[in-house]
Simulated assay, not measured.
Amino acid sequence: MLQTSPLYSYIPAKDIARARRFYEDMVGLRPKEETNGGVVYEFGGGTAAFLYLTPNAGTSRASQAFWSVQDVDAEIQALKARGVQFEQYVDMPGERSAQGAITAGGAKAAWFRDSEGNIMALVQTLSKG
């Protein structure tokens, strides 16, 4: 049953106003609605994320969520132009693009931290052959 149901993500924030400035001003997201003290952002394919208040924001050492994109390098350029800084994982295997994305295992990816310390990713699935 769950396999056919939409899956939505949560984005934890210690400071909602600060997180909103990051996601709306720097990343360029538009809020769909404010609810339960947080903000809902809609994405492609009918997916969404809920930005919510919690003291646990930024505590995960793994990616919180990722956007499936067509061109990681173009997204990196656009986000850098808005002030987003990307993580540089020097010990991660794979080829690096001029923009800093890593290609390995059939995907090209890049990561950034939001204003709350959460790790977010951009992932481009590469065609096989």
Score class of each variant (00 low, 15 high):
14 K>V: 10
88 Q>V: 12
45 G>Q: 05
59 T>H: 14
91 D>F: 11
39 V>F: 01
78 A>C: 09
79 L>Q: 03
14 K>M: 09
126 L>F: 07
10 Y>S: 05
52 Y>H: 10
72 V>K: 13
108 K>F: 05
85 Q>W: 06
105 G>E: 14
95 E>C: 11
61 R>T: 13
69 V>C: 00
75 E>T: 10
59 T>D: 13
119 I>M: 04
83 G>N: 01
84 V>I: 06
68 S>H: 15
68 S>D: 15
6 P>F: 10
64 Q>D: 08
83 G>W: 02
107 A>L: 03
69 V>S: 03
10 Y>L: 07
76 I>Y: 05
21 R>A: 13
71 D>T: 12
126 L>Q: 11
125 T>H: 10
109 A>W: 07
111 W>P: 06
98 A>M: 05
92 M>S: 13
28 G>A: 10
41 Y>C: 05
7 L>A: 08
95 E>V: 11
43 F>L: 00
18 R>Q: 07
127 S>Q: 11
25 D>W: 12
82 R>N: 11
93 P>I: 04
69 V>I: 00
80 K>Y: 07
116 E>Y: 07
128 K>A: 15
60 S>F: 12
75 E>N: 12
65 A>Y: 08
55 P>R: 06
80 K>D: 06
70 Q>S: 15
84 V>M: 04
67 W>Y: 07
73 D>P: 05
116 E>D: 13
103 T>L: 04
9 S>A: 11
16 I>K: 03
57 A>K: 01
17 A>I: 10
40 V>W: 05
114 D>S: 00
61 R>Q: 13
19 A>D: 01
39 V>H: 01
27 V>M: 09
85 Q>G: 13
93 P>H: 11
120 M>K: 09
37 G>C: 09
72 V>Q: 15
25 D>F: 14
92 M>Q: 14
34 E>P: 11
55 P>N: 05
28 G>I: 09
34 E>M: 05
38 G>W: 00
127 S>W: 08
109 A>N: 11
106 G>Y: 01
5 S>P: 02
58 G>Q: 04
29 L>H: 08
32 K>Y: 12
21 R>V: 11
108 K>T: 06
94 G>W: 05
30 R>A: 15
38 G>M: 03
112 F>T: 04
33 E>F: 10
25 D>Q: 15
53 L>Y: 07
70 Q>T: 12
92 M>R: 13
78 A>K: 10
9 S>H: 06
89 Y>W: 15
119 I>W: 02
34 E>N: 08
108 K>L: 03
129 G>T: 12
85 Q>A: 14
9 S>Q: 06
94 G>R: 08
53 L>G: 08
100 G>I: 02
